[in-house]
Nucleic acid binder design. Structure first.
Lengths: 157, 157
DNA sequence: GTATATTAAGACAACATAGTCTGATATATT
DNA sequence: AATATATCAGACTATGTTGTCTTAATATAC
């Protein structure tokens, strides 16, 4: 898996927050209920984002969390990095410690191109774009378990 | 990380095997010594590849493992699938169970394009190509720990 | 100020992945 | 046949990730 589960939780919560008014705090309990994620675990995830200054938090009644800046200024990549860190994305495809520009592994060049594309995508996509997609909520909260079909990907030609 | 550690071990062992004569068996001990991987663990990894018929094994003196077919007929993807399975590669970027063609998540389309590129790359690269790269051994066996530089990837423009 | 609502912090448990070890099985050599 | 050399199989341990729970800290409302 490219992203950790923890990271996905953070992403989903962020997108959900982006669909709400930025002026008000939303309780983590509300988020965890809507997303069906353990409250306590989500709390820890969101703390990471708060430390990274993507979220703002407030204790006490009417408290909760909200986006620290407007949703069009927070990218997919921002969230990923705040939770999984930079290293995970930036690893050698073969996991070789010595791999780098000076001493590239056999996949280095092709991998670098892919990584850049991936990062470009992650950097180009903002939370408000994700939240704006009408079909998102349907998917997000669907109980269905329609499996992705391996054939879609392996029948490449 | 995109690939499991287990998978990387299998890849590295496979590439190493591809650089040896296909007519002879190589002991797992020899491979584990050269790659600096635990012998017993590598044994289990290679068993997966043997079951997937990528490798052939032989017990007893002069036994060991070897590629089941010529190195230009085994792809990177073959090895990955034999160890990590199909599912890992084929997951939704947001980890949503309902995501699929019928009910795509907001990243589905962009993600699908990337995945296809990644799979194309993995399918296009064969073990003999990887083994043929002169600089591979240098990297593979280097004790150096030259870190990949995050700036290379995050200074996108 | 006391009660209530909320996040923060950290200990702990459950599960998955990675790694170790021991014995069984197959083959070759003598 | 006996012995040495291999992989195969499965139990066991260690580590890391994910998930749960309890307590502390902080803010509001009355």
């Amino acid at each position: 898996m490219l992203l950790s589960k923890t990271c996905l939780y953070g992403l989903r919560a962020s997108v959900l927050l982006a669909s709400k008014a930025q002026s008000e705090f939303t309780t983590i309990r509300e988020l965890s209920d809507e997303l069906d994620i353990s409250f306590h675990f989500l709390t820890k995830v969101l703390q990471l984002q708060t430390k990274a200054e993507l979220l703002e938090s407030y204790k006490g009644p009417n408290g909760g969390v909200k986006l620290a800046r407007s949703a069009d200024k927070i990218t997919f990549l921002d969230v990923v990095v705040s939770i999984d860190g930079v290293k995970k994305i930036n690893e050698c495809a073969l996991g070789l410690p010595g791999c780098g520009v000076m001493r590239p592994c056999p996949l280095h060049d092709q991998w670098a191109v892919l990584k850049e594309r991936m990062l470009n995508m992650m950097q180009a996509v903002t939370l408000d774009q994700l939240a704006g997609r009408k079909d998102f909520n349907k998917t997000l909260f669907s109980g269905s378990d329609e499996a992705t079909d391996a054939k879609d990907f392996f029948d490449l030609k």
